[in-house]
């Protein structure tokens, strides 16, 4: 089985991986990198702004809730397939006990930080699909998908 080419097709047209320490100065870097990657689909400014904002919310949540400002790592995987971008933002932090509660507009687990409790609501409104998976004490994975380019006829 050595020296043989793998036959399975990679299911994405392009991808990008990022990993960085959970520090707030990296929030800007993360959203700009994802937006730059997605820009190859020739989206509108509005679509790019929405994607950037959703990524910013997820990365901020990883830093202030996942790790509660303690050291840790945030990982991002982006992939593009047929005009859709998928972004997965993952941390190894405390996780979310009750995702339904976290999803409620204006709910925040850290009111002392002046958080608005709107992060997840904004993500849900700014991307087409949002799935949050979390294991308490192990971490959280936020997956989002957003169509960035029109569907081409007959393709």
């Amino acid at each position: 089985m050595m020296n043989r080419e793998l036959q399975t097709q990679v299911a994405v047209d392009n991808y990008l991986r990022l990993q960085f320490p959970a520090q707030s100065e990296n929030e800007s870097l993360a959203r700009v990198a994802v937006a730059s990657f997605a820009a190859q689909l020739d989206p509108t400014m509005e679509q790019l702004t929405e994607l950037k904002t959703a990524v910013s919310e997820a990365v901020t949540n990883a830093i202030i809730h996942g790790y509660a400002d303690a050291p840790g790592e945030v990982r991002i995987e982006c992939a593009i397939q047929d005009g859709v971008v998928e972004v997965v933002i993952e941390d190894d932090g405390v996780g979310i006990e009750d995702i339904e509660q976290a999803r409620q507009p204006l709910y925040t687990s850290r009111p002392e930080l002046e958080r608005s409790g709107m992060g997840i609501t904004i993500m849900e409104n700014f991307v087409d699909e949002l799935v949050i998976e979390s294991i308490p004490e192990h971490g959280t994975k936020v997956r989002m998908r957003k169509r960035m380019a029109p569907v081409l006829d007959g393709q």
Binding site: R31, T49, S56, T60, L113, R115, S116, G119, I122
Partner: peptide, 13 residues
């Protein structure tokens, strides 16, 4: 140039 929900927290505060 860019704004997310952190601004809402700042304003409400």
């Amino acid at each position: 140039d860019f704004v997310d929900s952190s601004a809402l927290g700042l304003i409400l505060g």
